[in-house]
């Protein structure tokens, strides 16, 4: 399973708005379009860190608003691990 699919599965577990994989857009806002709150966002970060064995920097998280940003960030981290 590629990074994007894995992240989709993790996001959908936490989000209030259950979008089909084909409906999920890179431009979807994690909060406004996918219904993640602060608590579920923290849980998502923990899940992603565990799944991909990476550390997400606290400063970086403030720059990640969209689903696509998250996929790109994690892909980069995984590739440079």
């Amino acid at each position: 399973m590629n990074v994007k699919n894995k992240i989709y599965n993790l996001v959908i577990l936490k989000s209030k708005i259950k979008k089909e994989k084909t409906d999920m857009k890179d431009s979807d806002d994690l909060i406004y379009d996918l219904g993640l709150g602060s608590l579920s966002l923290v849980e998502l970060i923990v899940d992603i860190e565990c799944e991909f064995d990476i550390e997400i920097d606290e400063d970086d998280i403030e720059q990640i608003y969209k689903f696509g940003d998250l996929v790109n960030y994690v892909t980069e981290k995984v590739n440079f691990r």
Partner: peptide
């Protein structure tokens, strides 16, 4: 239990650490 390379950290520990790190 969540296994993290190099050390063992349970899920609650990981969540608390991340929450503190992010200022939740």
């Amino acid at each position: 239990m969540l296994i993290k390379k190099g050390n063992i950290m349970n899920k609650i520990e990981k969540v608390l650490k991340t929450q503190a790190k992010l200022g939740y």
